[in-house]
Design a protein around this nucleic acid. Structure first.
Length: 862
RNA sequence: GCGGGCGUGAUGGAAUGGUAGACAUACCAGACUUAAAAUCUGUUGGGGCGUAGCCCCGUGUGGGUUCGAGUCCCACCGCCCGCACCA
């Protein structure tokens, strides 16, 4: 065979690895362990090019760690519960279970074709009762340990379909199916008490040195620790049995600028008012319209209702402030009530201008006492400002100094207490849906809420359900709810809510260490394999999934399912970018929509890549020749018809090409643009490498420049090793291109050529494992490449005798000199000053300044 | 709205505060060929001049720090991710 035929070599080597059991994770006392994990996918049924990139990265790490002498654990499973299966059932009548398992089978086959080094014997699916039964056991242990709570929470309620909607099912405040305006409604729900761990989850972030700083920062902001003041405004006259309104503020220093007191529509006082005044009730209902998302609530127009009640200012009995109900105040943060300080908060200012409430500066910029107009004055808390009659006696001070002084002042005077507050809320885990892990709870008329007994686990989902009407099929199942009360034995009813799918993904990494253990984990296995040494996944999971996993690892330690050493489950985290693809867009000839030819618009039409022919930088429809617009680097999306199916690429060019391409060019943490020409070019390169190997195997080398080739080889080993260690896969590939070029031009002896070729195969193998094995075998490598140790660079071969250094004149490169690598600063200075460009620039004078960084640069300032 | 990130040739991108554009794609030119494809070789940031060479401009925009800024700081513009029931 003189031509690279991927379909032949790829199945051949995949079979060889399988038969040799290369990727089975085995405990080995003679080796350090290494656990590499990529976020497990939702089994959509179709491999996405983004999957190829994500898993190719993990595979490079796993294969590299294996050949560098580690006992590797590299498992794969399925995040298999969730809404798509139910939506599929509603749309096409396929049962969620059948839909999911069919998809899993398809995707597993597709995954295998990529040649990923997974230990498939450890495969788990979160929808498997063996998995979710253990999750139920965990839930019961957490309940026992006081980590679970039951309380009210708001959900999106579709009043027409009479069902709870997920945020993504609410479009512009309306239900996706019914089109009805969504309301926020309270429901009793189960919660994990993650907020009790706020401080711990925050302070432990410091120890996560191998996490991206941006992810730690996002988590820090999400947890949102703040130091503020809790205080009360006395009502001028008691109302509804209340004498005061408790508020929490992070800016107590601006108390003298208070213009109003605002309460949430769900505040007890608002509810009491609503009960007796229909107008207030109607206003509160309006506030509850739209979805529950923070973005929707904060983007909504700010509206308020004057309750007519007033409160007294704590520092001045005679100063009365109006009490307003406002839609931008959330009941679940702080006390559900605030005082508005319009001069120093944009939201409060907009609100005050709208309702004509007073605006009063409490401080000014030093030297500029212009009162606030349309823009609130909000300087950084570290900037000094000039205070107006500050009660704590401040004149010029920063915001932070004022906050501290105010808290101390209020505590001493007795009208307020300093309080540390966290933005992090408890994790609501109840979902009113079928395709999830049932919450193992029983409701008994006599005993109330009772946990199911562990010996009755798993509480399995029934198969005989229908999706013809909206709502949770478990609610309307004729018999499934019926059970015996675990406490008293009388007939009782099961909880029909299932768990948030984030629960499934919060502990799967631990389950992989013993996927068939009789409890949630096997402590011995967990102690050996945990933590995950390298975790890889998308940044979109930076907050929720990763924070929940950190919480769960702690909870599992408390309940005895993980050792103490594993409370931070992921030692190192890498967040990779997306794969994007150009969108090909044109506009409809006809105007669509509108009445009687009036109105209407030309609507966009999105074309599949295969419908389009590219000529230079323009694109034309193959069918009509019409030019279409190219929108580059867009996120792949089904509705935009720009999703690339990696199987087509694998069919055409093989898995190695697909892997090579998705890892080249773009740095792993950034998005990568998929282009068909790029994939073809990758294939051409791999074919060249193969052809080169055939040539080398034939021999006939001239025996010249052995030393040069070996130097180049060691330099490449060194560079590629460093790049793989630091996730610079694109840089590693660039070096492999360069070395291939050097090797193809080399005229070294046959033995050295073959050695260089084997090393090239080894260095390429983490990315292109099949081609690597093929070349390894062709060049007489012993055994399988995957069992051969990674080449080590000879340090002596890396040292250069001379280096070229650029000379800058006034910061601009003007010349370069060649000096000995170990030349002293003084020697370099002399050589540089003698250079004709420098002599010319100095024109007889002396340099103002001379900067010499040995080995790097000389800068002459004239 | 809030939090985080990104922005470099025609294109993907490279560059511990130290030669901007490595490596690749595309294009163009050449070799091979009856021809094309394939393959191989070479050129290519923009502008200018007295064209073996030299000069100016250039990393979204505008300012700043520095001997020196793609890199650090500030403001703005654009795009992407997250915002607690998408996974």
């Amino acid at each position: 065979m003189t031509r690279l035929i991927p379909s032949e070599i790829e199945t051949k080597w995949q079979t060889a690895w399988e038969e040799a059991g290369c990727f089975l994770a085995k405990r080995d006392p003679g080796k350090p362990k290494y656990y590499v994990l990529e976020m497990f996918p939702y089994p959509s049924g179709n491999l996405h090019i983004g999957h190829v990139r994500n898993y190719a990265m993990g595979d490079v790490v796993a294969r590299y760690k294996k050949v560098t002498g580690h006992a590797v654990l590299h498992p794969m499973g399925w995040d298999a519960f969730g809404m798509p299966a139910e939506n599929g059932a509603m749309a096409s009548g396929v049962h969620p279970k059948d839909y999911t398992y069919t998809n899993i089978d398809n995707m597993r086959d597709q995954f295998r074709r990529i040649g990923l080094s997974f230990d498939w014997t450890r495969e788990i699916a979160s929808c498997d009762p063996e998995y979710y039964g253990q999750q139920q056991a965990l839930f019961l242990d957490m309940l026992d340990a006081g980590l679970v709570d039951r309380k009210n929470a708001q959900v999106n309620w579709d009043p027409v379909d009479m069902t709870v909607l997920a945020n993504e099912q609410v479009i512009d405040g309306k239900g996706w199916r019914s089109g009805a305006e969504v309301e926020r409604r309270e429901l009793t729900q189960w919660f994990f008490k993650i907020s009790d761990m706020s401080e711990e989850l925050l302070s432990a972030l410091d120890g996560l040195e191998n996490w991206p700083a941006k992810v730690r920062l996002m988590q820090e902001n999400w947890i949102g620790k703040s130091r503020g003041l809790e205080m009360a405004f006395d009502l001028s006259a008691p109302a509804f049995g209340q004498e005061r309104i408790e508020v929490y503020t992070t800016r107590p220093d601006t108390l003298m600028g208070a213009g109003f007191v605002g309460i949430s529509a769900d505040h007890p006082l608002a509810k009491a008012l609503a009960a007796e005044n229909p107008e207030v009730a109607e206003f509160c209902d309006t506030c509850r319209k739209g979805g529950t998302t923070a973005a929707a609530i904060e983007k909504a127009e700010k509206i308020g209702y004057d309750t007519g009640l007033t409160v007294k200012h704590p520092l001045d009995e005679s100063w009365e402030l109006p009490v307003w109900i406002a839609n931008f105040i959330l009941m679940d943060y702080g006390t559900g009530a605030i005082f508005g300080c319009p001069a120093h908060d944009q939201r409060d200012l907009d609100f005050s201008r709208k309702y004509d409430l007073p605006v009063k500066n409490t401080f000014f910029a030093i030297g500029d006492e212009t009162p606030v107009g349309k823009e609130a004055f909000v300087p950084p808390k570290t900037e000094k400002v000039k205070w107006v009659d500050h009660f704590a006696g401040l004149d010029e001070a920063t915001g932070q100094e004022a906050i501290d002084a105010t808290i101390a002042f209020a505590e001493k005077a007795g009208w307020g207490t300093g309080k540390t507050q966290y933005r992090l809320r408890d994790w609501g885990l109840s979902r009113q849906r079928y395709w999830g892990c049932p919450i193992p709870i029983v409701h008994c008329d006599d005993c109330g809420v009772v946990p199911e007994k562990k010996e009755n686990l798993p509480v399995e989902l029934p198969y005989d359900v229908t999706f013809d009407i909206p709502g949770n099929p478990l609610d309307r199942h004729p018999t499934w709810r019926d059970c015996a009360c675990p406490a008293c034995g009388k007939p009782a009813k099961r909880e029909t809510d299932t768990m948030d799918t984030f629960v499934d993904s919060s502990w799967y990494y631990a389950r992989f260490t013993a996927p068939h253990a009789k409890g949630p984990t096997d402590m011995e296995e967990a102690a050996y394999w945990m933590n995950v040494d390298q975790y890889i996944g998308g940044v979109e999971h930076a907050i929720l999934h990763l924070l929940y996993s950190r919480f769960f690892a702690r909870a599992m330690q408390i309940t005895g399912h993980l050792p103490e050493t594993a409370i931070e489950p992921f030692d190192a985290l890498f967040t990779q970018g997306m794969v994007t693809h150009a969108i090909y867009k044109s506009w409809s000839e006809e105007k669509i929509g509108g009445l009687g030819g009036l109105g209407g618009q030309h609507l966009p039409i999105y074309h599949y890549p295969e419908e389009v022919e590219l000529k230079g930088d323009k694109a034309f429809l193959k069918l009509t020749g019409k030019e279409v617009e190219i929108i580059p680097s867009a996120k792949m999306s089904k509705s935009k018809n720009n999703v690339v199916n990696p199987l087509d690429i694998i069919d055409a060019f093989g898995a190695d090409t697909a892997r090579w391409f998705v890892l080249s060019d773009s740095p792993p943490e950034r998005d990568v643009e998929w282009t068909a020409s790029g994939a073809e070019a990758s294939f051409k390169h791999l074919s060249r490498v193969y052809a080169l190997s055939v040539r080398v195997a034939e021999g006939g080398g001239a025996g010249q420049g052995d030393e040069d080739l070996l130097r180049a080889m060691h330099k490449t080993i060194h560079g590629v090793t460093q790049d793989i260690e630091s996730f610079g896969f694109n840089a590693a590939i660039a070096k492999l291109y360069a070395f291939t070029s050097t090797l193809s031009k080399a005229k070294a002896s046959d033995a050295v050529m073959a050695q260089a070729m084997r090393v090239l195969a080894q260095l390429m193998a983490p990315v292109t494992p099949h081609l690597g094995e093929e070349i390894w075998a062709m060049q007489g490598g012993e055994g399988l490449l995957i069992d051969a140790p990674w080449p080590v660079a000879d340090e002596a071969m890396l040292v250069e005798d001379t280096v070229t250094m650029p000379i800058q004149i006034n910061g601009k490169r003007r010349a370069e000199i060649s000096v000995a690598a170990d030349a002293s600063k003084e020697a370099i200075e002399q050589i540089a000053l003698a250079h004709e460009a420098v002599v010319k620039a100095l024109d007889g004078g002396t340099p103002k300044k001379l900067i010499v960084v040995p080995g790097r640069i000389v800068n002459v300032v004239v």
